[in-house]
Amino acid sequence: MLRRLPPCLRRALPASSSSTSAPRRGVRLAEHGQSPPQSAPPPPSPATQKDGAVRTPGGGSAASSLNPAEVAHFASFAETWWDTEGPFKHLLVMNPTRVSFIRSILCKHFRRDPNSSKPLEGLKIIDVGCAAGMLSEPLARMGATVTGIDAADESIKIARVHAASDPLTASIEYLCTTAEDLVKENKQFDAVICLEAAGIIFKTLKFRDSLSISERGAFLLSYISILENALVVLYS
């Protein structure tokens, strides 16, 4: 089953799915646990690990959505995330399809004109686990006021640099933080979107109720299910 996935995604998923903070339940998680050792990522360098720990002083690592090892792992891929021929090309190829789907959902939900070039104008959207901005940037070009958050500091830096090269995306607010920390700021959003961060799926369901979503807001969560070899979307 694992072999059917592109190598880059297979490398990424075990890391996030093996989060120690995620509760282990049922057959699915058990199969994750049985992944062969060689597919696990190499351990992060001590310096990076230390940086990761330092950046979450308030909540402590126990309360974070991701543990420092996972943050470091994702960060090591940050620079090549936007390369259409790089290790994440499959995600980039998939991006227009999922963006088109999200656009369709949000246009219906907020009764926006789907023929407009900026149908999401006036909406405040948060992209949880934004990585290098593959979703945040399209949302901004479609008119939304976007906040992207990610626990990996380097990802946030890469996302900022990439977004700055286009006036339409330069206004995105990228924050190196966790969802739990953001809750304390009492910010309100029209839509919360959390995609392809399977390791925090169960915690996401928990903090969904914590994040302030405006009346008639939307919440989207999706992940790639290894067992079902499919893209699963939860929408409410």
């Binding site: 963006v99 088109s100 399209p138």
Partner: peptide, 12 residues
Amino acid sequence: GVSVGADFGDIS
């Protein structure tokens, strides 16, 4: 490209 918020100068 515009409909999905893409950079329409992108080679892909």
